[in-house]
Amino acid sequence: MSPAPDALQRRHRFQWWELLPWATGLAMFFAFPNYLSFGTQLLVTILFALSLDLVLGYAGIVTLGHAAFFCVGAYTVGILAQQLGWNEPLSGLVAAGLAAGIVGLISGFVLLRTHGLTLLMVTLCTMTLLEQAANMGHAWTGGFDGMPGLSFTMILGLFPFDVLYFKSQYLYSLSVLALGFVVVRTLVYSSFGQSLTGIRENLLRMHAVGAPVRGRLIVAYGISAALAGVAGGLFTQVTGYVNLAVLGLERAAGVMIILILGGHGRLYGAFVGAVAYLVLEHLLAKAYPTAWQLGLGLTLVAVALFARGGLIGLFEKLRGAR
């Protein structure tokens, strides 16, 4: 199915259905007041997956180490709160984004000269390195146990973090996600975003049209890292703790799986993937952890073999076939 001839001119305009996720998000708030803790996790995960979409889905950088940036953001907020008594949430998020963004720019500058298998390896190594470092820096990071019992001041001085029902956390996360989404959406529809897809589609040609390929990739990597850092910072703030579980191959693979399951390079894939994954995990994983893992594995194999566009891709196909 071909897009309409003027699709490029129109695609950045908001469509009515783009309100759906946000309407659903708000409706959830009123309909399931007892599930807001879960809902908050969901929103954080969506933001994390969205940040990955920018590099993996749009720029085509296959990385296994994206959890590193989530971790940098999470620990930045944690260390600021515990060691320096910096408990103000909004500035904490900004700090998390900045810290992760800087780490992203530097590591992008160093790592993005490689590609393919080597890139996969160096991103994996970087993340493992960070994990070990966080484990060793016990005085700052709390080592394996992390930093439990963090507390934060009121959001905007108005809304206290709500340890029991997660009401303010939920709305806070929804707002941060909306902001992050606007950033990503603006980027991917801009000329910059277009050039990222160009790099993904054909590197050789992108060089031949005179694009500063490596610079673009590094910038994209940095922005994506900053967003992942914000997601990490948000995670620490809403849960009130941070530990090494935010890191590691399983977490990195997890967010990649979420994105691919939803559909990468599709803007809303992060939403669909996170909802599908977390809801199923919530229902299955505690009762039947092994069955959950088995099902997940089989799903991945099936997606890799048959449904490369993920759930959204499947939906597009069905609509196209009609």
Binding site: V62, L120, L294, L296, V301, L305, R308
Partner: peptide, 27 residues
């Protein structure tokens, strides 16, 4: 089936396979 596929698909497929193997052994 995946020799000509992108790395991403190979990564997904083999991670999926790891999960299946791990779960199968656990079960």
């Amino acid at each position: 089936r995946l020799y000509r596929a992108q790395e991403l698909d190979q990564v997904l497929f083999t991670i999926g396979l790891v999960f299946v193997m791990t779960a199968a052994v656990t079960l």
